[in-house]
Design a protein around this nucleic acid. Structure first.
Lengths: 126, 126
DNA sequence: AGTTAATGTCAGAAAACCTAACATCTGATT
DNA sequence: AATCAGATGTTAGGTTTTCTGACATTAACT
């Protein structure tokens, strides 16, 4: 049986200020990645974002992929291929990828083949 | 070698709102326990409290002890005996316990002997 | 009845966060 | 070179959350 995943991995606990501190990303970046469907943090009743450790790991991975030159669409594709995309509402889901983009993405994905999901999650390894 | 303690056990991550949600305590209670030197959360630059998972565990234990009828002084004593009190500044440290209180505490502590530190930390077991 | 410990409640201020808009930068395209 | 688009910065105005400090309430004990 695999590792019993940590109790808090999916619990929304961290406000965006803490996440910026832990990831080095700016709040602007984090919200932008959310716009692109890469993460979907929980919300308080007052609509403040709360992130889980899984979100934190995901953001770290996004950061790495960005530094490798990937763009939003590329990262999204990779996440999709690994079945790691958050349940996306149809609104943001209909952001279809253009043809030329697809070729670009494909090229970049080659560069990245197999680089993801090798169990180096900094905060939790599920 | 003992368990490598989780990376985040001591990292200040959680705002008081999240802690109330996780513990069932009110913000008033949590701040009151801090006044009594039972916890010492970190602060942001803007003086907002940030709690670690260790703090969370400690608050859970405080909660249990309270439900067992212990009072602040009793809990404090127990924490002291177990070397678990946060570094306390002299200000709050000089809250000395009266004689009659001491007897009461001693009585209650008997009731509680050995009940603490049996490795039931809900969030992390160090 | 009077104390006191623990908690509730309230008010005003400050911090953190929200969305939306516009600005800037950079790399790719024409 | 000019333009375009993607990613991020910045700002403004509003809302949510937290802060401290004071006063109120409740329950237990003397």
């Amino acid at each position: 049986m695999p590792n019993a995943s940590n109790e808090h991995e999916h619990t929304p606990l961290l406000p965006i200020g803490v996440v910026t501190g832990q990831t080095g990303l700016t709040a602007r970046q984090i919200r932008y990645y959310e716009q692109n469907g890469l993460i979907k943090p929980a919300r308080t009743n007052g609509k403040q974002r709360l992130y889980s450790f899984q979100d934190l790991n995901r953001l770290q991975e996004i950061n790495r992929l960005l530094q490798d030159g990937l763009n939003m669409a590329g990262i999204k594709k990779i996440f999709q291929d690994n079945g790691l995309l958050p349940e996306v509402d149809q609104e943001s889901a209909e952001k279809r990828v253009s043809e030329t983009e697809m070729r670009k993405i494909f090229h970049e994905e080659l560069k990245q083949a197999g680089r993801f999901n090798h169990g180096r999650g900094k905060f939790f390894n599920k």
